[in-house]
Design a protein around this nucleic acid. Structure first.
Length: 281
DNA sequence: ATACGCCCCTGGTGGC
DNA sequence: TGCCACCAGGGGCGTA
């Protein structure tokens, strides 16, 4: 579910509510996520104070005191919800896998119906060696992400869209934003990645940033599961140019839908890709 | 190293 | 109404 803009939206919501809060109680309710919950999760989190929350690609890094890092990946359907414990009348449901209470009376729940999400807990010194993090490419919102890096990482024969989904190329890229970025850059998802050079790389680089920025400003995309920690929806789905718009008129060209067929849906690497064959080359 | 298919899991939707 | 196939925002793993 959550791609970079959704995870970033969640990071901001969590940080605003939890910064400085101390974890008073932890209740793991179901341990068999994608990987088993870290051993002794409740004991190790209890009493810790939230100092900061970072994001790397689609990973959340919750920095706690005592140099501890709580790593969370939301998989396809994971989300966090924060409410005041007093008013949180809603009892946990079958998919609330971890419940947490802070000393000032906030309740945090991790909810993940499909259970593709996972967590880890380790000392901050180990961040650089973490097997899930050390392979990630630069975060596209950071200064380390550049057109040069993109060009270097696209030196392969894989279709461009498939390459973009590789987290070593663009950390945090996912299926929606890959299609949207390629539309914006006017590049065909079918092109071999290595054919993208020069001005095309510059367009792609700028498009990725622009699409992510707009999506974050909209609170991410709520198709099914995504919610901000406050419970609010994201709204970027209303701005999709191509994602999920099979057969609709391309917002970029004036082609007659009856003649061109409008937006195409194809499958690449087992995942749907949406694009305008007229506009994207 | 790279590329591809398969798999993990639940829930929503649309066709019959 | 019921059943079922198919689809979904991710990514690790085994195999060529």
């Amino acid at each position: 579910m959550p791609e970079l803009p959704e995870v970033e939206t969640i990071r901001r919501g969590l940080l605003a509510a939890l910064a400085g809060q101390r974890i008073a109680q932890v209740e793991p309710r179901r341990a068999d996520l994608r990987f088993p919950l870290p051993p002794q999760l409740a004991v190790r989190l209890s009493g810790r104070r939230v100092e900061d929350i970072e994001r790397r690609g689609k990973y959340l890094l919750i920095r706690l005191d005592h140099g501890l890092v709580w790593l969370v990946h939301l998989g396809m359907s994971g989300r966090f919800r924060i409410d005041a414990a007093e008013t949180a009348a809603m009892p946990p449901d079958a998919h609330d896998h971890v419940l947490l209470l802070t000393d000032s009376g906030l309740r945090l729940r991790f909810h993940d119906p499909r259970r593709f999400g996972f967590m880890d807990l380790f000392p901050a010194e180990a961040i650089g060696r973490h097997p899930m993090l050390c392979q990630l490419g630069p975060d596209p919102l950071s200064a380390a992400f550049s057109a040069a890096h993109l060009a270097a990482r696209l030196q392969r024969r894989t279709p461009l869209k498939t390459a973009l989904l590789d987290q070593r190329v663009v950390a945090g890229m996912g299926n929606i934003y890959a299609s949207e970025s390629l539309f914006q850059a006017r590049l065909s998802p079918l092109r071999p990645a290595s054919t993208v050079a020069g001005p095309a790389v510059a367009r792609l680089f700028a498009s990725i940033r622009a699409v992510f920025d707009r999506a974050i400003a909209a609170g991410g995309s709520s198709l099914r599961d995504h919610r901000q920690p406050s419970g609010e929806l994201g709204y970027f789905q209303h701005q999709f140019a191509v994602y999920g718009r099979t057969g609709e008129r391309c917002p970029g060209c004036r082609c007659d839908v009856g003649r061109t067929g409008g937006i195409s849906r194809i499958v690449q690497g087992g995942r749907a890709t949406f694009y305008c064959p007229q506009r994207q080359r």
